[in-house]
Amino acid sequence: MTSPAKPLLSVENLSKVYQGRQTLANRLAGVRPFSVKAVNDVSFEVRRGEVLGLIGESGCGKSTLGRAVLRLHEPTAGRVEFDGEDVTALSAGALKDMRRRMQIVFQDPYASLNPRSTVADIVGLPLRLHGLAKTTQEVRETVARILERVGLNAAHLDRYPHQFSGGQRQRIGIARALISHPEFIVCDEPVSALDVSIQAQIIQLLLELKDEMGLTYLFISHDISVIGYLSDRVAVMYLGEIVEMGPTDDVLARPRHPYTQSLMSAVPDVDAPGKHQRVRLAGELPSPLDPPTGCKFHTRCPLAIDVCRREAPISEQVAPGHQAACHRLSEDLSVRETVAGVQAR
């Protein structure tokens, strides 16, 4: 798993800026169009066969990042290299071929399947698009096989998405992503919309398929328990930036960034209710339209000091393969203790 060889995916300084259109009315009124840095100068690597968990709250840019990597949303700046090829520089034709090797599983099992298409058409689409099956019969046979594998069967071929439950739909979405035998899958919150017992079924399925088919996942989720359970390494995002990244065990056992610390303390825990002191973050995610200066977390950070408001921290190595971006790393503070200390006083 930890081969020093070249990573399968390497992302360098990737940014995605959404720019509003400059309209005449705005120009007359002297209003500049909005510009949102959804993803800001993000770099990371995913090794072959690994699961990189990407965690963050809604609006932090994690889904945009996942889509920018696949060029579903065109990145504004930066490079994405997949198996030695620069994805960002690919022509439309080459990109289409690349799509066979990089796939995505979506969050919403209801919105991600065309309601007017049959399962055979939905799952068989990649085969047709990439010329992987010659005849309709061949398409149907291949689709039936993959359906079988994800826990459905050939009897489902001619049904429509609305005839399935959420969990089954997610299985259809997984079958569609896997039928072209890709190497890399972006899993964009694939279990967030599902019931607990179904969620576990899908997680199990995704892990089995990964081993069987030698897949590599970029697993996006807001659920720290899910990420903690299945990822080898984890990256924590806040307002378009990765604030901490490292081996899952290390990051979750010893989170160094105050945001990671508060995120972990906010998760309700069945095993130890109320055992830990909760770090209550002040306020909400600032508007990405008007991000804070300096460290973007300073408006909510219990540890913020003057320098945090002025300068953006640079990511530093805190342990082997574990990096974090915080001005107060060297002081080795724990948000929990600090907050407890303040409350005690």
Binding site: Q168, S197, A200
Partner: peptide, 20 residues
Amino acid sequence: LGSIPRLSLRGKPIRPIQGQ
């Protein structure tokens, strides 16, 4: 309770309730 993915279960298989 067994279906909830937890940090403490890392590396161990979870046992989802089968079926619907």
